[in-house]
Write a protein that binds this DNA or RNA. Structure first.
Length: 682
DNA sequence: GAGCACTGC
């Protein structure tokens, strides 16, 4: 509860600074890098104008191998303009201009806009490439793509020779893919120079002012600062620290509701689905009992797992005289832009993944946001006009936040990244030139993981890719899934394994509305296999295919048809890769023992053993684990299982299990399990 | 007997 519950809510806040995206007194400047700040302001201004004049911009950009930008307005003009400038300068004649985006929708919509501006049919001069969709042709010179897609292309062409320019957009988001691409383009640029190839030009675009890190990494490349057109935002902090941010959010929502004109919408940042639904319910309840003078309110939850139709509600304007209150996860920070927001309420909390390299465990935990994230949230209030941001924490607490969100590459399992780097032919992956280095433990643990899978081998301290590892890298999958697929022809069950891996590599296909629990259980019973969740999922997928992907069937059987559609696409893609490798594709029919045998051999690192006291131990780390209550094996006590993933919540749960024999595990990795099983028994 | 931020190949 707030410390001073008797004060009216507004009195609990004190104003902070008025925030501009960039300093108003220094309109857009072209600054040399730090330490050389002697350029007179009028010269800076003049140079700034270069940016709005293609010729002058190009003069500047084309004479430098790497250029780092800040962009005033996110997702606006510049991302569509700059590639066109470069193309018109003739740089596209020798190769393609690639513009990478962290998200598919952004790549697709930007390509559409640029094609329109060039009055060209999409897929001709201007195109895009994202997973499952390629709208390019031999004529394509401006190619918008996801960062992951360019990375995948780099495996076949590490010097990126098809491209003359790579524009890395939204670089401040620091996705794993962008971070690896930084190293890839830097290496490609150097190698192409050494080999006397056509030079590769790199342009890094970031929405934040913190581009020093980028500039530093690319050998102190020049930085172009641009003025933003962000409207001023008044920041408020609480006077006292709040122990209950839910309560504080509620109080703040209704304070604003009572005082502000009804056309001013509110966006509240919370951490997760459950919290959001609870707050939305409470708001609606309270709103019902407010005096008529207060005006009405429509409360809309927003999070990624919401069905698409309900997500669209955030874009619909509220009825006249009614206030729109959107309660959202951080999806509204970057992925979804909502217009008309006048007030942002920032709880200062976020749910994010953390990685522990010792246990190999990823944990989803509620934690404090970074300063950059808090500014990003605040900025959502000033897109069309000035706005306000209520931070439900004190200014001192804000000062104590970390400046930038820790890049994803320092918070995730690196096995897939390391495999990809080796497939790119990077000579010394252990010392790869990351912009932000992951911890040595994380790198070591990833390489050990790959070694266990037989993807890499160590000779005199040097790590290299095996033939198996090279094949594994061709799959857009986690290494252990790729390995399982590659093993499957030995067990004559590649079709089944392709289905299971596809099912495991998308969000769950099971739809579990809590209110219809009994119905769900009944519907699911006919697919349940005593061999575990993998087999149960396979049964569901087989039944789904039998009825031809019928949506009605999905509804009746509580199956998420959107995710099921995705499974089909993934499976088709994986099958294509197998065919190119000339892998034998066959079905084992009813003999599912082979499927489990194959899974045991591919997933042996994720194995657990029943203990005499009825609990389980994970065999690789000897960590106590439990069967998740959602598993079909929850009430069974199988002696040995392999699991898809560990979920660390109230306990450490294994999710998605498969019954296996101890002999199979020993057979899969005799030395490893000889060691592990002994250790367990002692 | 629990409960999953967000992307992406």
């Amino acid at each position: 509860m707030p410390h001073d519950p008797d004060l009216p809510p507004a009195k609990k806040f004190k104003p902070g600074s008025v925030f501009f995206r960039l300093d108003k007194n220094k309109p857009g400047m072209l600054l040399p890098r730090k330490g050389n700040a002697t350029t007179p302001v009028d010269v800076q201004r003049k140079q700034m104008n270069h940016f709005y004049c293609p010729h002058l911009y190009l003069n500047y950009a084309l004479t430098r191998p790497v250029l780092c930008h800040t962009l005033g307005e996110t997702g606006s003009g510049k991302t569509t303009q700059i590639p066109q400038y470069l193309y018109e300068a003739g740089i596209g004649r020798q190769g393609i201009i690639a513009i990478t985006q962290p998200r598919r929708v952004a790549a697709i919509s930007l390509a559409g806009r640029v094609a329109e501006e060039k009055r060209s049919q999409l897929g001709k001069l201007v195109g895009y490439t994202v997973r499952f969709e390629d709208a390019t042709s031999p004529e394509t010179k401006l190619k918008f793509m996801t960062d992951g897609m360019l990375l995948r292309e780099a495996i076949g062409d590490p010097l990126l020779l098809r491209y003359t320019v790579v524009v890395l957009d939204e670089a401040h988001e620091r996705t794993v893919h962008t971070d690896v691409l930084f190293g890839v383009v830097k290496t490609a640029q150097r190698r192409r120079k050494e080999l006397n190839k056509i030079p590769l030009k790199v342009i890094v675009m970031s929405a934040t002012m913190d581009v020093d890190l980028f500039s530093e990494y690319f050998n102190k490349s020049p930085v172009l600062y641009l003025e933003g057109r962000q409207h001023p935002i008044q920041i408020y902090y609480t006077k006292q620290p709040q122990s209950d941010y839910l309560q504080a959010a509620l109080v703040t929502i209704f304070q604003i509701h009572q005082e502000a004109p009804p056309s001013h919408d509110i966006l509240v940042f919370m951490t997760g689905q459950e919290e959001i639904e609870a707050l939305a319910r409470t708001c609606r309840d309270i709103a019902k009992h407010l005096p008529d003078s207060c005006g009405s309110m429509v409360v809309i939850p927003m999070y990624a797992s919401l069905p698409p139709v309900q997500q669209l509600r955030v874009f619909q304007p509220a009825p006249k005289g009614c206030r729109k209150v959107i309660v959202s996860t951080n999806i509204a920070e970057t992925s979804v832009t909502i217009s008309g927001i006048k007030y942002v309420i920032d709880t200062g909390m976020v749910k994010a993944k953390r990685f522990n390299p010792d246990s190999g465990l990823e944990v989803l935990a509620v934690q404090r946001v970074s300063k950059a994230q808090a500014w990003q949230r605040a900025g959502r209030a000033g897109r069309e006009d000035s706005g306000s941001c209520y931070r439900l924490y004190t200014e001192q607490e804000f000062d104590g936040l970390i400046p930038m969100t820790v890049p994803e590459i320092q918070r995730c399992n690196l096995a897939g990244v390391m495999l990809q780097l080796m497939a790119l032919g990077i000579p010394d992956v252990m010392n790869f030139d990351f912009m932000s280095k992951p911890s040595p433990e994380a790198v070591r643990s990833a390489v050990e993981h790959l070694e266990l899978l037989g993807a890499v081998e160590r000779k005199e301290g040097h790590v290299s890719l095996t033939a198996l590892g090279k094949k594994m890298a061709s799959f857009p999958l986690e290494p252990r899934y790729a390995k399982t697929i590659l093993l499957s022809p030995d067990y004559s069950c590649s079709e089944e394994i392709l289905s299971i891996v596809s099912l495991l590599s998308v969000d769950t296909v099971l739809y579990n509305p809590p209110a219809r629990r009994e119905e769900v259980l009944t519907a699911r019973k006919k697919f349940t296999s005593s061999e575990g969740d993998f087999m149960t999922l396979l049964n569901i997928y087989r039944a789904f295919k039998k009825v031809g992907g019928n949506k009605e069937w999905c509804r009746e059987n509580f199956v998420n048809s959107r995710n099921m559609g995705l499974v089909k696409e993934v499976q088709a893609q994986l099958r294509d890769i197998c065919l190119k490798m000339k892998l034998k594709l066959e079905s084992c029919g009813a003999d599912t023992g082979n499927v489990r045998l194959c899974l045991a051999h591919g997933m042996f690192i994720n194995a657990a053993e029943l203990q005499p006291d009825g609990s389980y131990l994970a065999l690789d780390t000897h960590q106590p684990v439990a069967i998740h209550p959602s598993s079909v094996l929850f009430q069974a006590k199988p002696a040995y299982v392999v699991f898809n993933e560990l979920l660390h919540t109230s306990r450490c749960y294994m999710r998605d299990l498969c019954l296996v024999d101890a002999d199979w595990l020993l057979d899969a990795a005799p030395e490893y399990f000889g060691r592990k099983l002994r250790a367990t028994k002692s």
